[in-house]
Design a protein around this nucleic acid. Structure first.
Lengths: 255, 255
DNA sequence: CGAGTTTTTGAATGGTCTCAACTGGAGTGG
DNA sequence: CCACTCCAGTTGAGACCATTCAAAAACTCG
């Protein structure tokens, strides 16, 4: 749980103030429907914050004075039970919104899973803006509804899928979201670096690290995935992986 | 799955048009922040629909032309996997909203769990109203955020709780929500009729009916609950039940 | 290289599921 | 009224999958 970087490939993210119009997540974040004027206001009140892997962003029960978007990296929302059991209940990728308007008290822990950069706004200013900016409020409602769908898909995974299906689903979802972040299509043979440790995965999937590790080994042996090291994943046949995930066409995959 | 009533205590609900100001869920539904004018408009476009236990309200993938509030009874949202596994992903009580604005395609099945009465609006009319009624849009955002929290609490249950804890949590939540519906405080010694069959509970908890049944028997033997028949539940000591649910003060219980 | 950490692998335990039989209440018909 | 069916729920026995405990292997960093 120490605030130590786990990857040598990233240095400390620059704190440079990126113009909104050049922002990588401009097309999908809360601000995606804003007019130039509204954007200018956001530009004035926004700031950036960075976090190292394992660093706590918000503690459960804490009152937060900011809200914002994930610009870079991966944020885990999790619940720690009093006896130490942990369940991750959300995984935020770039463009996802963090924090809840009108509800200052955080219902879950938010932890940086990888190196993270947030674009944050002071709560009071953002809430005021929200009240007079229907476009943004609508976008936020849309995003919240999508997140609710994602949470429900995850409930299916947690309640009914086998360990093997859980791990396969996880890989399918992460590769899908990372492709989206990179603005590229999801093709066979995608390679990616897993942002999570085995422990994080286990907490997300409702399993133990040992079981996660065993299922990864099994998927490797079957040729459904390839791993050059513990973090670097290649998916030779995406549809074959989906098959193993137990998802029939329609269901799931809205992380 | 037949559309048959499971309880003899209710006759067919009356289809009488209740005035909004007399509505039982007026204080917590989407319309709770509406002005008298807005309410009048709602009054004009609303209608009631009733469903019998087991009756399908919306099928997954179906395009729905209505949205609305649960006025009476209990609605289950569930996902059916292609091999027959089922996971319930939401349980709607009176005042909960059903359907998603701007997203006509239903992502899950919605099934009446008990006798249900909905207050419904034509999608197009409601969406138009929503666009020009910030109070309602804000309320809907609020409700959606609460539902997201509820879904995440349920993820903790599905991913990390034992069968015993799952059943105890379920009883705690249902009694809490039913007390809310009845506008009474949650006291020790509450009695209630479970709106769900053992199968529905199993689907909600990610268990089998046999396991649910065994855990209920165990809780009964320990005196944490009393059951006069399979549906009628009494909780002599609510805090003791919470203890068995594995919830430490803060967590959970936002159904 | 050596210490500490993460990941993998192994063996045994145990909680939940599966399969199967039984119970009890509601409805039906003789 | 009783015999019968039907279905929801309960209980039992055994199997299986994921966990637990333990140790080895691989990797990171000083």
């Amino acid at each position: 749980m120490a605030a130590r970087p786990r990857s040598a490939t990233r240095r400390d993210p620059p704190v440079a103030h990126v113009r909104c119009k050049d922002c990588m997540i401009r097309d999908r974040a809360v601000c995606s429907n804003c007019t130039p004027q509204e954007l200018e206001f956001l530009e004035a009140i926004k700031s950036y914050r960075t976090f190292r892997p394992g660093e706590e962003i918000v503690a459960m029960g804490e009152t937060t004075d900011f809200l914002g978007s994930v610009v870079e990296g991966c944020v885990g929302l999790s619940h720690l039970m009093s006896d130490g059991r942990r369940q991750m209940v959300g995984l935020l990728f770039p463009s996802d919104f963090i924090g809840r308007p009108m509800r200052p008290k955080a219902p879950f822990d938010a932890v940086a899973v990888s190196n993270v950069r947030l674009c944050v706004f002071a709560r009071s200013k953002f809430e005021a803006l929200l009240r007079e900016t229907p476009a943004m409020e609508q976008r936020l409602l849309e995003m919240t509804l999508d997140e609710l769908d994602g949470a429900r898909d995850w409930m299916v995974l947690l309640g009914r899928k086998s360990a093997r299906e859980k791990v396969a689903t996880f890989f399918a979802i992460v590769s899908r979201r990372l492709a989206q972040v990179r603005h590229v299509a999801l093709s066979d043979g995608v390679s990616l670096e897993l942002p999570l440790t085995r422990e994080d995965m286990a907490d997300y999937l409702g399993l133990t690290i040992e079981t996660v590790s065993r299922q990864i080994s099994a998927l490797k042996k079957e040729g459904l995935i390839q791993m050059s090291d513990a973090r670097h994943l290649t998916i030779p046949d995406y549809n074959a992986l989906l098959e193993a995930a137990g998802d029939d066409g329609d269901g799931g995959l809205v992380a």
